[in-house]
């Protein structure tokens, strides 16, 4: 498996002069920077071939990553507690999966990922603009832990950008289908597809952006993404702290209808 460098590339691109935090697992890249004039903390989960947990060496979100994300985001909440301007949190998302392993299950990886979700969600509720920037894979539990709690999700338009609940081989095994059958279904059932076009049809993304070179971004690419992030911060400031903005697509009509009925009957 080739390790993806997209997370690190975009982390560096968006925080050119900032110094990454020390004392974190090497798989977490975190720094404070500015987007235009807005304070922001940029966060990426990246491959670390020396990761003490062997099942988390390819950029997976594992035990250290989950708890580490929780810690670093919680620190931002605490630091800005008494500030009117809460720094934006930008999650750069290129995560192939959560870590699959015996040690992970035994030590409660679900709880570690809850640590990350908890902090991202509390940051959003506390008024931090939280933005997820999808530059590569956004898979399953890893995406839940790193990005899915964002007020706004932005994805770069590229064949390497994929969103899904499970890798194809495992999804085929669990649903008692072949990978070919799974792909045939995915072609007709938008929520089952892996590609960005279908994902965008679900209404979960706030914006999709084209860049010239996703793995070697040009100055124009970086500026375009940075501007979009700033627009997202402004958009969040004008709106609510919840995830309601994700419910508008026709492919989510059932999600809306359920909420309408619940409200009527509540």
């Amino acid at each position: 498996m080739t390790l993806s460098t997209r997370g690190l590339i975009w982390f560096n691109a968006l925080s050119p002069n900032a110094k990454p935090f020390e004392g974190l697992p090497a798989s977490l890249k975190v720094c404070d920077t500015t987007l235009g004039s807005l304070p922001a903390r940029v966060i990426a989960v990246v491959p670390d071939e020396q990761n003490p947990f062997p099942r988390a060496r390819c950029g997976e979100v594992g035990l250290l990553e989950g708890w580490g994300l929780g810690r670093i985001i919680n620190e931002a909440i605490e630091a800005d507690r008494d500030h009117d301007t809460k720094r934006a949190l930008v999650a750069i998302i290129d995560v192939p999966s959560q870590a699959y392993g015996r040690r992970e299950e035994a030590l409660g990886i679900h709880q570690a990922l809850a640590g990350a979700v908890d902090a991202y969600a509390r940051a959003r509720l506390a008024g931090h603009p939280v933005i997820g920037l999808i530059v590569g894979k956004a898979m399953s539990g890893a995406f839940l832990a790193h990005g899915y709690q964002a007020n706004r999700l932005i994805a770069l338009r590229d064949p390497g950008v994929e969103v899904h609940a499970m890798g194809k081989a495992s999804a085929a095994r669990i649903t008692l289908r072949s990978v070919d059958e799974l792909e045939a279904l995915a072609a007709n059932i938008p929520p089952m597809a892996y590609d960005l076009h279908n994902y965008a049809s679900l209404g979960l993304l706030w914006e999709t952006l084209s860049v010239e070179r996703i793995e070697r971004p040009t100055e124009g690419d970086i500026n375009r993404v940075s501007e979009c992030l700033q627009q997202a911060v402004a958009d969040i400031a004008a709106g609510s702290h919840d995830l309601r903005g994700r419910l508008d697509a026709s492919n989510r009509s059932a999600s809306r209808q359920v909420r309408e009925k619940l409200l009527e009957q509540w």
């Binding site: 979700v117 908890d118 969600a121 509390r122 959003r124 509720l125 399953s140 995406f143 839940l144 899915y148 709690q149 969103v163 899904h164 609940a165 499970m166 999804a171 669990i174 649903t175 279904l185 059932i189 938008p190 929520p191 089952m192 597809a193 279908n198 994902y199 679900l202 979960l204 919840d242 995830l243 994700r246 492919n251 989510r252 999600s255």
Partner: peptide
């Protein structure tokens, strides 16, 4: 068992929203 794989990305999105709502209500 988690996400219903036949509704994959919409199941995952719903779980993110369940998580968001737990953290909100828990306050």
């Amino acid at each position: 068992g988690g996400v219903r794989l036949q509704e994959a990305n919409l199941g995952l999105a719903a779980i993110a929203e369940i998580q968001a709502a737990i953290v909100d209500l828990r306050q």
